[in-house]
Amino acid sequence: MFDGFTQQRIRTSGAEINLRTGGKGPALLLLHGYPQTHAMWHKIAPALAERFTVVAADLRGYGDSSKPQTDERHAPYAKRAMALDMAEVMTELGFEEFMVAGHDRGGRVAHRLAIDHADRVTKLAVLDIAPTHEMYVTTDMEFATAYYHWFFLIQPFDLPERMIGADPGLFLERKMGHWGRDGTAFTPEAMAEYRRCFSDPATIHASCEDYRAAATIDLEHDEADMHRKLGCRVLALWGEKGFVGRKYDVLESWRKRALHVEGHGVPSGHFLAEEAPRETLDALMTFFSRPD
């Protein structure tokens, strides 16, 4: 799925990160969402690599990256810890400055990366999310119904782990079908990769910890930084057929957190890079290529 890319593993201070690199030019880090892996970028990463050095990584707890032991505060799965992994990965690869695009959970890690490492992230693209803090504090029945998994996955260990573990393939397919609007968008190769990785009990547990952290320690970090606005340019994209763009004023949500925000919807459900690869590629290529 990633012809011409090199796969490697990089050890950080808290995990071991699996990733693929390809291309040449300015560095562009791509971060995936739940319940996927870096494979979600396979339709657009080769084209991006014609202009950028693309780094497509598995977040800690997902794919073939390591699954660190957690603690009572879920700190090993805080977005701060996950973002630090990526900052250290980019240092190891020789990039002091870089751009980042994140989808879903990867967008939340990318947001924290741009806060904690503001001197290194030059541009940020977030795909189909509003800021975590805003989504939690404005929760209503419509949101809770559409994003029921946020409230299921944060239940105490090991209730969600046991329930998902009974049939992880079914859970993954139903979840992706619930969010997506084009079931034909997911290639057999990508789906096989998602099933392989999500069938690992360690991945199921780690992904629950990701969401438990989002509802606890991540909110503490977000509230402490609410007065800080991102200085880098931000591109917000969302699926026109999905929930986020219907429920939230996405641009206004991000303008509360950043000084320079632009963006628009693309003709897809939640999985932009797979359901609308051409439109997503065009938007990312234009944004990241433009001198600002």
Rank of each mutant, 00 (worst) to 15 (best):
P46H: 03
A190T: 15
F5K: 09
A130W: 00
Y77G: 08
D218F: 01
W238V: 06
E223A: 12
S65W: 08
A81K: 13
V250C: 09
P188T: 03
A202C: 10
R233F: 02
D128V: 01
H111A: 02
Y194L: 06
A190F: 09
L219T: 07
P201S: 13
K24Y: 13
L259W: 01
A166V: 12
P188C: 09
E274I: 01
R195P: 12
R73E: 14
A75C: 08
F186H: 09
L84Y: 07
F157E: 14
H205F: 10
R108F: 02
E134H: 07
L30H: 01
S289C: 06
A258F: 02
D200W: 07
M1P: 10
R20H: 08
A236W: 00
D58C: 11
W254L: 00
R162K: 14
L29M: 12
I217Y: 04
E209T: 10
F243V: 06
L230A: 08
G269V: 01
P160F: 12
E134L: 13
V89K: 05
H221R: 07
M86G: 06
L28D: 02
F243E: 07
G245V: 02
I154P: 10
H42N: 05
L28N: 05
P68D: 08
G263S: 06
A27T: 02
H38M: 14
L251S: 05
A83C: 07
M191W: 01
A166E: 14
A57C: 13
A110S: 12
V55R: 06
A81W: 08
Q8M: 15
G177I: 13
M176S: 09
M40D: 06
M163S: 13
E240H: 04
S253H: 08
H117S: 15
S207N: 14
P131W: 02
K67Q: 11
I17H: 09
T91C: 11
L48S: 04
P26Q: 08
S207F: 03
D116L: 14
C232Y: 00
A27Q: 10
R51E: 07
A224Y: 06
Q69K: 12
L251Y: 03
P201Q: 11
L259G: 09
L48K: 03
A87E: 05
D218A: 04
I115G: 05
G102K: 03
R290V: 05
A57T: 09
R278L: 10
K67C: 11
A213F: 04
T280V: 02
G25A: 08
P46I: 01
R278Y: 04
T187E: 00
E240P: 09
E189W: 00
Y136K: 09
Y34M: 10
R11M: 10
I115R: 12
G265C: 00
K247S: 02
L272Y: 01
I204R: 04
I44R: 03
I154H: 14
A206Y: 05
T132E: 13
A236F: 00
R105S: 03
H117F: 15
F243L: 05
S65V: 10
P168A: 14
A57L: 11
P35S: 07
I154T: 15
F95K: 11
D158N: 15
L259T: 12
M135R: 11
G23V: 07
T21M: 03
E274Y: 00
F143H: 13
R233L: 04
A87N: 08
D158I: 10
W238G: 02
I17R: 11
